[in-house]
Amino acid sequence: MTNKHFDDQWKLLQQIRSTDTQKEAVRKRIRESIEGQPSKTHPYKLLQWKSIIAASLLVVIFGGFLFMLMEEKPKQNSSEYFVINHEFFSWKLEDVTSKKAGEKLELYNKNNPIPFGTVNEVTEAEMNSIIHSKPMHVNQELEHFPYKTFMYIEHVKMQDVAFRYYFFIPLTKEKWIQFTFDYPKIEYADIFQAISTLELKGKKPYHHNEPLYVTHGYGKMIYPVDLEPISVTSNNYEVYRWEGASTEAFNHYLEKIPRGYDNRFDNWKKESGKGSVNTFVSVDGNEVITITLNGNKLTYEYFYPNRDE
């Protein structure tokens, strides 16, 4: 390839740009964000505060009346009435505690004061509003889970959160329960272990009679749902305790990998392996994963042969 051809390529790459619609959408967002910023000069700030306080007082007074009226009303039909508290749900994920925070429950790992997730009840309209107002990148119904479960993944640009997983499960015709989990405050495997072993009080869960695998939301590799992280580092090396580990279960898993989550047979090719150590290559050749079973420890080693990093 000549320098001239190389130069032509740069010229083409320089022409890449977004569409006018995208530009307009970002322009609108910037305007909204800028206008939402606090002003540095506040000539009538005091007046504004007075109005806010007066309005808040009115809300409190009328809210009080409303609350008293509602208290007088009989409770709704108990078969359609759910109270979201720590007794309402359970799962096999250990060392999780919850604390009431307003309308929702916050989820904590034992001995960690920072919540990693939330649980709350939402209406269908609220759920749709959440789905449409966040930058959701994955929209998937999880098959064979204990309840009809819809998963969404939001890209979150926070120091300690990269992805926020949302799971919506219908409770009644109008009400849904929403679970959120923040990665990397909680590991992928833990998120899916929680949801795949979920039991809601008063709602019978479905138990699938075949092993369940998930993609952890992204990527093409499937993982058993019953993994507990032992050592997950950023050095492309992960070790899990596999609850359902056995030679038979491992063979079933290895057979399932090339078929993928969607049974399309176009995700992974087995490169080598026999027995407990097996290597798979993604069809584009950009990812190589060696999977090893040792007792009940399942190890993944990731390599990216075409990545210059």
Partner: peptide
Amino acid sequence: RKRKRFFSAV
């Protein structure tokens, strides 16, 4: 993104 498995994710 250097946190594991992000690059292959998107």
